[in-house]
Amino acid sequence: MTAIPLNHALILSAMLFTVGLVGLLVRRNIFFMLMSIEIMLNAAGLAFIVAGTRWGQPDGQVMFLFILALAAAEVSIGLALILRLYQQFKTMDVDAAHELQG
C-alpha cells in the first residue's frame, strides 16, 4: 500500500490529543468535556494504530477495539450522570460545585 511517514501520523495524534486536552480544560459545560475526552481517547487510539503499523502486528488494532468498548461504557455512564444532574438541578455547569468545599 502507500508509504506514510509514521512520525507525521504520530504528530497528528499528539495534536489531536492536545486539542482534546485544551477542550477539557477550558469548557465548563460537562457535555463538551465528555466530547473532549472522546477526542483524547481517539487520539490515543490513533497512536496505537500507528504503533501496530510500525510492527506490522494486529495488537494495536486489538487495543483499539478495547478502547472502543471503554468509550461506549464511559459515555453511557457519563450521559446518565448528565441526565440526572440536569433533571434534578437544571444545570450543565460542573463548576457549580457549591456543595463540596474547595
Partner: peptide, 20 residues
C-alpha cells in the same frame, strides 16, 4: 469520571508510545 477518563487517555497514549 471526567478526571479519571482524562487520566486514562494519558495512560493509553503512554502505553501506545511504549508499545511503539
Amino acid at each position: 469520571l471526567v478526571l479519571a477518563a482524562a487520566a486514562s487517555s494519558f495512560l493509553l497514549f503512554g502505553m501506545a508510545l511504549a508499545y511503539l
